[in-house]
């Protein structure tokens, strides 16, 4: 466990908490893509099946359970509790465009052809693109609430910190997982445009709106 990994996990957790607090305080999920949140719930569900097969550490188990619970509460908030505030019209990204290639790729390119490993690979590939419905929604409406941009910032920061973690692990432990690294790079690239807008607009006190 290195500093990048810990900070990465903390910013991932922080992102999810920011989103939940935003929805809970405003009693609204306006501007949030329910589809992205369903994908994240699917990501955690398919990735953390090893909770049932192996014990790694208390930290590992507790964090996996917290992530799962947060993801499902978020989906519940959007589709059940505050569903009237959900902007269904603008959340129009076609999920099959992500799910079909990701499923196919996880069968083709994995560490071993076993159910758990294929599901883990599926979750890694899916996570790298799961934010696209949310980014698509923002590009469609042309704006995002500031708190939503904080959520996106910490979610992107988490994966960027994991990249640093992998570089660190490669040099110190000779650890290298090609599937995770390649997907992680792809995932981080999707946030670059947003990071630029976040730094040039949101951090200067302006609302994120697209021209």
């Amino acid at each position: 466990m290195n500093i990048f990994r810990i900070l990465g996990d903390v910013s991932h957790l922080l992102a999810m908490i920011i989103l939940l607090v935003k929805i809970w305080r405003s009693k609204s999920c306006a501007g949030i893509s329910g589809k992205s949140q369903i994908l994240f719930a699917l990501v955690f569900t398919t990735r953390y099946l090893d909770l049932f097969t192996i014990f790694i550490s208390v930290y590992n188990t507790v964090m996996k359970v917290i992530f799962l619970v947060c993801a499902y509460i978020t989906v519940y908030m959007i589709y059940m509790k505050f569903h009237k505030t959900f902007d269904r019209e603008h959340d129009s990204f076609r999920l099959e465009f992500l799910l079909v290639p990701v499923t196919g790729l996880s069968f083709l390119e994995n560490h071993s052809f076993t159910p758990l490993e294929i599901l883990w690979t599926f979750s890694i590939y899916l996570e790298s693109v799961a934010i696209l419905p949310q980014l698509f929604m923002i590009s469609k409406t042309g704006e995002a609430e500031t708190i939503t941009t904080h959520y996106l910032f910490f979610l992107g920061l988490y994966r960027a910190l994991y990249l640093a973690n992998w570089i660190w692990r490669y040099h110190t432990e000779n650890f290298y997982d090609q599937i995770a690294v390649v997907s992680g790079v792809v995932q981080t690239i999707f946030y670059c445009d947003f990071f630029y807008l976040y730094v040039t607009k949101v951090l200067k006190g302006k609302k994120l709106s697209l021209p």
């Binding site: 192996i54 590992n60 964090m63 996996k64 071993s112 432990e173 995770a180």
Partner: peptide, 10 residues
């Protein structure tokens, strides 16, 4: 490490 049947990363 990242074994086939369990992962230490989240």
């Amino acid at each position: 490490g990242q074994g086939v049947d369990g992962k230490d990363e989240l």
